[in-house]
Write a protein that binds this DNA or RNA. Structure first.
Length: 288
RNA sequence: GCGUCGAUGGUAGAGUGGUCAAAUACGACACGCUGUAAACGUGUUGCCUUCGGGCUUCGGGGGUUCGAAUCCCUCUCGACGCA
């Protein structure tokens, strides 16, 4: 460990499976050490997606500032690069204020975008082009990519249309897809992962989903969807926003959430810097 | 009670004499990821294997055949129709 390591400002990262109590833990830590919270959730950035995404209620924030929640209309698309830019801005601001940034969320890709210092090629999405390319099949796209960027074509997943389309999009704009650049992060990230054994997680998810459909205060998930539709969010867009938002049933949402939790773990498992905590062992007075 | 149809792998559902360990979908498990990431993609999914193959499967039992998930008989269960 170099000395410089200690000079870097600390950023706490709370990640892990859905429904394990990340938000609550983040608030608790923030209270204790004087922190402010940056959400790392690809869907909580949207206004009006509250119940389905398990967004934290204002009163649960307990006066702690939260950022990158409710910053975009669900009619528009928000991307990982936008997240990276905004989050880095917020980190800087919070540190300048003498507080500790706490990144909290379950979207692994977003978290890695910040903590791993990956520099994405600066090519914004070109939706008309994507739409056009989506008409072609994977083989045709692969041939096209080979022609304009044989280098990238070598190691791309040849069957993944989404990746192929993005690669072509970049190559068209820049001539070729640049090699992935990694900039050493300017912060010391302390990563805490929350997980629950499958049985416990399932119970917790089931409870949470039940509440989504029948909240004590009224106005559940179905009302939320109605409201979104009324405000002009299309069915197609609702589908994109996740399984909770397109013809959900309790069973569907529970199963979908469990599948998601599993996928989250395959993502996080590779990150050896994470210190894992069993969420069921964290009590209200967990000594931090 | 008579008649008709049906019973297939974790589920749904193809297959109707050999090319069937059995399509496809879902689920399950594992894995990947260069601005969609709760997205998107890939692999495995009867058992054993020295990875060549071997063994047991299509409601139960019996039979026909060189060969049966597929044909015949019978039993069990289910749906519908007639009583």
């Amino acid at each position: 460990m170099s000395k410089r390591h200690f000079d870097k400002p600390k950023v706490i990262v709370i990640m892990g499976q859905t429904a394990t109590g990340k938000s609550a833990l983040a608030v608790k830590i923030a209270k204790k050490i004087g922190g402010e919270i940056i959400s790392a959730d690809s869907r909580q950035v949207y206004k009006g997606l509250d119940i389905g995404t398990g967004k934290i209620f204002t009163k649960e924030m307990k006066g702690i500032s939260h950022y990158l929640i409710d910053i975009e209309s669900p009619k528009n698309k928000f991307t990982a690069a936008q997240f990276k830019e905004l989050a880095e801005e917020k980190i800087k601001e919070i540190i300048a204020r003498g507080k500790t940034p706490i990144i909290c969320g379950g979207t692994g890709f977003y978290i890695d975008a910040i903590t791993k210092g990956v520099v994405f090629p600066e090519v914004p999405p070109n939706y008309p082009l994507r739409k056009k390319l989506a008409l072609a099949n994977d083989r045709a796209l692969m041939l096209k990519l080979k022609k304009i960027d044989p280098e990238r074509a070598k190691n791309i997943d040849p069957k993944n249309k989404v990746r192929l389309i993005r690669a072509i999009e970049i190559a068209k704009a820049l001539g070729k897809v640049p090699h992935l650049a990694v900039k050493p992060p300017s912060y010391k990230f302390i990563k805490i992962g929350l997980y629950l054994p499958a049985e416990k997680l399932k119970k917790k998810v089931a409870k949470r989903v039940k509440k989504m459909f029948n909240p004590p205060a009224g106005g559940g998930l179905l009302d939320e969807i109605k409201k979104l539709k009324k405000s002009g969010v299309s069915d197609k867009r609702l589908k994109e926003l996740g399984f909770e938002y397109y013809k959900p049933t309790q069973e569907k949402v529970i199963n979908g959430t469990m599948q998601y939790a599993k996928r989250q773990m395959t993502w996080f498992k590779r990150d050896k810097e994470i210190k894992w905590l069993n969420a069921s062992k964290i009590t209200k007075d967990y000594p931090l």
